[in-house]
Amino acid sequence: MQDITRRRLLWSLPFATAAVAGGGFLAMLSGIRKGNFDPKEINTPILNKPIPAFSLSAQPPSTGFNQQELQQQTEPVLINFFASWCIPCLTEMSMLQQLSSHISIWGIAYKDKQNSVSGFLKRNGNPYQRIGQDNNGNVGIEWGVSGVPESFLVMPGGIIKWHYPKPLTVNSTQTLLSLLK
Score class of each variant (00 low, 15 high):
residue 1 M to P: 08
residue 2 Q to R: 15
residue 2 Q to A: 15
residue 5 T to M: 15
residue 9 L to S: 12
residue 11 W to D: 09
residue 20 V to P: 12
residue 21 A to H: 06
residue 23 G to M: 11
residue 24 G to S: 04
residue 24 G to Y: 06
residue 25 F to Q: 12
residue 26 L to G: 04
residue 28 M to H: 03
residue 29 L to Q: 13
residue 29 L to S: 08
residue 31 G to Q: 11
residue 33 R to P: 02
residue 34 K to M: 13
residue 35 G to W: 10
residue 37 F to R: 13
residue 37 F to K: 13
residue 40 K to G: 04
residue 40 K to P: 02
residue 47 L to S: 03
residue 48 N to M: 05
residue 49 K to A: 12
residue 49 K to H: 13
residue 49 K to C: 09
residue 58 A to T: 12
residue 59 Q to N: 10
residue 62 S to C: 06
residue 65 F to N: 11
residue 65 F to T: 06
residue 69 E to Y: 07
residue 82 F to G: 09
residue 84 S to R: 04
residue 93 M to E: 10
residue 100 S to Y: 06
residue 102 H to P: 04
residue 102 H to S: 14
residue 103 I to G: 09
residue 104 S to F: 05
residue 107 G to S: 15
residue 107 G to N: 08
residue 111 K to Q: 13
residue 111 K to F: 06
residue 112 D to A: 08
residue 112 D to K: 09
residue 113 K to F: 00
residue 118 S to E: 09
residue 119 G to Y: 00
residue 120 F to V: 01
residue 121 L to Y: 01
residue 125 G to N: 01
residue 126 N to A: 00
residue 132 G to I: 04
residue 134 D to S: 02
residue 138 N to Q: 14
residue 141 I to C: 09
residue 142 E to V: 07
residue 143 W to A: 14
residue 149 P to R: 09
residue 152 F to A: 02
residue 152 F to C: 03
residue 155 M to S: 07
residue 156 P to D: 05
residue 156 P to E: 12
residue 167 P to F: 02
residue 168 L to M: 09
residue 168 L to W: 00
residue 170 V to H: 13
residue 172 S to F: 09
residue 173 T to V: 13
residue 175 T to R: 15
residue 177 L to K: 10
residue 178 S to E: 13
residue 178 S to I: 05
residue 178 S to C: 08
residue 179 L to E: 07
residue 181 K to Y: 01
residue 181 K to L: 03
